[in-house]
Design a protein around this nucleic acid. Sequence first.
DNA 1: CCATCTTTGTGCACGCGTTCACAAAGGCAT
DNA 2: ATGCCTTTGTGAACGCGTGCACAAAGATGG
Lengths: 221, 221
Amino acid sequence: MPTVSSEELATAAGVNSAKLRKDFSYLGSYGTRGVGYDVEYLVYQISRELGLTQDWPVVIVGIGNLGAALANYGGFASRGFRVAALIDADPAMAGKPVAGLPVRHTDELEAIISDNGVSIGVIATPAGAAQQVCDRLVAAGVTSILNFAPTVLSVPEGVDVRKVDLSIELQILAFHEQRKAGEDSASAAATASAARSGAGGVRSSASRKGPDGDVPAVMPA
Amino acid sequence: MPTVSSEELATAAGVNSAKLRKDFSYLGSYGTRGVGYDVEYLVYQISRELGLTQDWPVVIVGIGNLGAALANYGGFASRGFRVAALIDADPAMAGKPVAGLPVRHTDELEAIISDNGVSIGVIATPAGAAQQVCDRLVAAGVTSILNFAPTVLSVPEGVDVRKVDLSIELQILAFHEQRKAGEDSASAAATASAARSGAGGVRSSASRKGPDGDVPAVMPA
DNA sequence: CCATCTTTGTGCACGCGTTCACAAAGGCAT
DNA sequence: ATGCCTTTGTGAACGCGTGCACAAAGATGG
Ligand SMILES: NC(=O)c1ccc[n+]([C@@H]2O[C@H](COP(=O)([O-])OP(=O)(O)OC[C@H]3O[C@@H](n4cnc5c(N)ncnc54)[C@H](O)[C@@H]3O)[C@@H](O)[C@H]2O)c1
Ligand SMILES: NC(=O)c1ccc[n+]([C@@H]2O[C@H](COP(=O)([O-])OP(=O)(O)OC[C@H]3O[C@@H](n4cnc5c(N)ncnc54)[C@H](O)[C@@H]3O)[C@@H](O)[C@H]2O)c1
């Protein structure tokens, strides 16, 4: 019976072994002392707990550069996610196949969500359209949203939103990069706090969004 | 003089106003009691502290679906990032223009990093190539890496790595989604811990990667 | 010049995740 | 069967970010 110890797993994942054991303990105790965890059973338990035993239909809204890349990505299927539909507002794209799926027009959004029982939506539209798209998704029954647009979405309670802001990822790297260069005390003190507040750029209510409605140009370049 | 209160900013950003004030206090105290913060000065201070006053040349390695999308993304420039070069191992792509830049071959990687003084690299290659690319980037002088490949990179001390794993983002949503459906105590107890351990999938040392060297197929679909 | 009102800056406490450290458990060899 | 060795499961301590609550500061109007 193939087994792994918490220590091996911890090293591979780059985390503390005690944390890992404690996390596993929440799923019940099925390790064997002196031996470790049965790999097969462990994988099954985690998969089930994480909801990977069922597969989730998702829709991607906004089939531009990013949306198309996501649609073409094969890695989601192996994690239990199935792209149910690609949706875009551009009439010129309607029907055009992307990654083997025909792009559907936004008009059909509600029907698509409903017909496929979709509860997870991905937003890859320009920031200006994100809130509006979000509202329609939620109204149609979506309760989990992965947002790539650089905007803070407001949603009713019960709806989960995760935001992926690639610019901020780079900013965080640049921030630390800057600290490596010049070491002054002020920067050092602010590190922990500032670095963690990664999500959601600070935007003054007095500032304006750019004309294109995309990235709010608050910070000077 | 246009000003904003911490309360206004906090509401807009969806955070606590005290936290916001405390964060600002690390940059020094330049708010005016009874009035708020001078917008212009605040923006300047934050920009400077975050390293947005200078611009950072970045290279993108792996110009496939995702790499090309990133290259085409205009949002980075306004945040102080300039795409210095696009690099790919595929000889067929060499010279081909993507987003106005000619794709350079991997052979030139070291020269490009060095010539442009690049300290930030983006990895968008298949997982199988990520560590190798990472090593070359680091050896050439890159000290910050944004990694999109689903792999834990090992780097020498002093090098920062941020990993963006979109599959895991979806998994986290699916996990909460599952909890909304069936409420059992075990799931509830594991929530906080499991949801936060988002980065880095658990991979047993006994498991194998897929033949394509991309997403490790540990979890059953 | 004083009273009042608004908003900052921050000490302090709370909550929570992380890590340590170790007793208990169980395999395994003798 | 017994003792040893390895590894789990977890109680307790630690560290840290977050939020509360309030005194001090400063603007503003009378
Ligand atoms: N491309 C990237 O690498 C990248 C990186 C970081 C963030 N982002 C963000 O992701 C989003 C998409 O980026 P992109 O580069 O793919 O942009 P894009 O302009 O290439 O694509 C946007 C797509 O959304 C569609 N669209 C516009 N309004 C819509 C609506 N109301 N309903 C449905 N579809 C609509 C457009 O027709 C277009 O196809 C943007 O918010 C961008 O800021 C992109
Ligand atoms: N496309 C997505 O939406 C998406 C989503 C999540 C994760 N990812 C991850 O991002 C990475 C890229 O995804 P993709 O869809 O763009 O893949 P892709 O196959 O379209 O592109 C990969 C590119 O990397 C190049 N490459 C391969 N080996 C290289 C090397 N050693 N040096 C330089 N370049 C090399 C290839 O020539 C190709 O152009 C993968 O690791 C994938 O798992 C992608």
